[in-house]
Computed example of a mutant assay.
Amino acid sequence: MAHEIINPAGLHDPGAFGYSHIATTSGELVFIAGQYASDGSGQVTSSDFAEQVEQSLANLRTALAEVGLDFSRVVQLRTYIVEHDAAKLETIGRLIGQIWGKRPPTQTLLGVAALAFPDMLFEVDAVAVRP
């Protein structure tokens, strides 16, 4: 199966970090790499957990738009949370609910000791399906 690697201009250049933002296939699946609260240079934008989740989801929206998709095409999320607790779970549930309502995609939530950068508190990757 043929595939294409894409790095949207609206997101930081991930090459120095050893990954790409999007992989599409000649089939229906689109894979979005872990998105975190990064600005255009890859720096973490906030130390606040909720703000990090919001920016991470905004970056996910940018990646999806690059390949002509939106949140409605996402079928799976994997979320990674540093020092996971009930308050962070509530924040994620609320913000995911604002996007997907009562029918969110499948999701695996992983509590982790750390992410790629010390300031990162949250990361999300996704699988979407082309119409």
Rank of each mutant, 00 (worst) to 15 (best):
G42R: 11
L60S: 05
G34Y: 01
A33T: 05
G42N: 08
A37L: 02
S26G: 10
R61Q: 14
L29F: 09
S41E: 14
D39W: 00
G40L: 14
Q52D: 10
G34I: 02
S47W: 00
A23L: 14
Q52C: 13
Q55I: 07
S38T: 12
I22E: 03
S20G: 12
R61L: 07
T24N: 13
L29T: 03
G34A: 11
T25M: 08
V53E: 13
S38I: 00
Q55S: 03
Q55K: 15
V53Y: 01
T45D: 01
Y19G: 13
L29K: 06
S47K: 11
V30A: 09
T24I: 15
F31Q: 04
V44Y: 00
T25P: 09
T25N: 08
Q55V: 13
A63F: 05
Q55L: 06
D39G: 10
V53S: 09
N59H: 06
A50R: 15
G34L: 08
A58L: 10
V53L: 11
A63V: 04
S26A: 11
N59Y: 02
S41H: 07
L29Q: 04
L29D: 07
Q35R: 09
T24F: 13
L57G: 02
L60A: 05
L29N: 07
A50W: 07
V44G: 00
A58W: 03
H21W: 15
T62P: 01
S41N: 13
L29M: 05
Q52W: 02
V30P: 05
A37R: 00
L57A: 06
A37Y: 00
T25W: 07
E51H: 11
S26Q: 06
I22D: 04
H21L: 09
T62Q: 08
T45P: 00
E54P: 00
T25G: 13
Q52I: 02
E28N: 14
Q35L: 04
S38E: 07
L60C: 06
N59K: 03
Y19E: 15
A37H: 00
R61K: 12
E51S: 14
L57H: 06
S41D: 14
V30F: 03
A23Q: 13
A33W: 03
Q43R: 14
A63Y: 07
L29R: 09
E51N: 13
S56N: 05
G27L: 11
G27R: 12
E54C: 04
S56K: 01
E51C: 12
T62S: 02
I22L: 14
V30K: 04
I22T: 07
A50Q: 14
S41I: 06
T25Q: 10
Q35S: 04
S38K: 08
V44F: 00
F31T: 07
E51G: 15
A58D: 07
G40W: 06
Q52H: 09
S56Q: 06
I22G: 10
Q55Y: 01
E51M: 13
A33Q: 08
S20F: 13
